[in-house]
């Protein structure tokens, strides 16, 4: 199976200050194409809503694959002891298997409890109740439920881990800011910021430092039969993640 790499890291950033609807979990979202940590002031202020990265890669056998979404980084080792997912949020991995950029399958994750003793429920993969920015929690399809920070499900079916993991992203952040002093917009007040790079390339091996070293993230890792995602589609999939209130 081949993956549509261009869509691996597409993501939808939720409107962070929208009304919280804890029971219905209806979500209103604003589409933003972006990648990696702390992209907007909204998610900097609401780190539990911050999607760090979405990954998809082949699984433990040729007919299986792995989907990963990381959130909430950076979590320091000391913070890890109490870190937990937000019980008022709906976390989703969405899969397009027909090439039209619209989700055909969703994996939905919700949580109860607090801190490291939370319970996760994963619903799907299943067709969503509604595509696009508004959706609700699905009531049909397979579910996996259990404690966070443990391996759930079965090795031949759907396997799930939801919990604290070392953040796999790798970046020499300090040098990044020297190469690109500010990721400024084209218009508006911020466009007036000075543009004075003080470096033109990465620091060499031995001097470069991975900023994410030692920092943790709250991750969803799902391994499952690829056929559950591709269905009767083209055999190629696009994957993205969302977090919604």
């Amino acid at each position: 199976m081949s993956l549509s790499l261009s869509s691996l890291r597409r993501r939808v950033t939720p409107r962070a200050l929208g009304a919280s609807v804890a029971l219905a979990l209806a979500a209103t979202t604003t589409a933003v194409l972006a990648s990696d940590h702390q992209d907007t002031p909204e998610v900097e202020l609401s780190p539990r809503m911050d999607i760090n990265d979405v990954y998809a890669f082949p699984g433990s056998s040729a007919d299986r694959m792995v989907l990963v979404m990381t959130t909430s980084s950076p979590i320091t080792p000391a913070q890890g002891a109490t870190a937990g997912f937000d019980t008022n949020l709906l976390y989703q991995l969405k899969v397009d298997n027909t090439g039209d950029g619209v989700e055909d399958r969703v994996l939905q994750f919700t949580f109860t409890g607090s801190g490291p003793s939370q319970q996760v429920t994963m619903r799907g993969p299943v067709a969503p109740n509604q595509t696009g920015q508004m959706t609700t929690v699905v009531t049909s399809g397979p579910t996996v439920t259990g404690a966070t920070n443990t391996n759930l499900g079965s090795a031949t079916g759907v396997q799930l881990f939801a919990g604290l993991r070392d953040d796999p992203f790798f970046l020499d952040l300090e040098q990044f800011f020297r190469i690109i002093p500010d990721r400024k917009p084209a218009t508006g007040p911020l466009s007036q910021l000075p543009d004075t790079p003080s470096a033109s390339g990465w620091r060499p091996v031995g001097q470069a430092v991975d900023f994410l070293r030692g920092l943790n993230t709250l991750a969803f890792v799902v391994e499952l039969p690829a056929s559950q995602l591709t269905g009767t589609g083209t055999g190629k999939i696009g994957v993205w993640g969302t977090i919604s209130r």
């Binding site: 320091t76 952040l173 300090e174 430092v209 030692g214």
Partner: peptide, 25 residues
């Protein structure tokens, strides 16, 4: 607990700062 985490975090970021003399973050 909050005080303990903060103390640990200060030590964590200080150690990182000592590992990277160019790290403003």
């Amino acid at each position: 607990l909050e005080q303990h985490i903060r103390t640990e975090d200060i030590a964590f970021w200080m150690k990182r700062a000592s590992e990277d003399p160019q790290s403003a973050e």
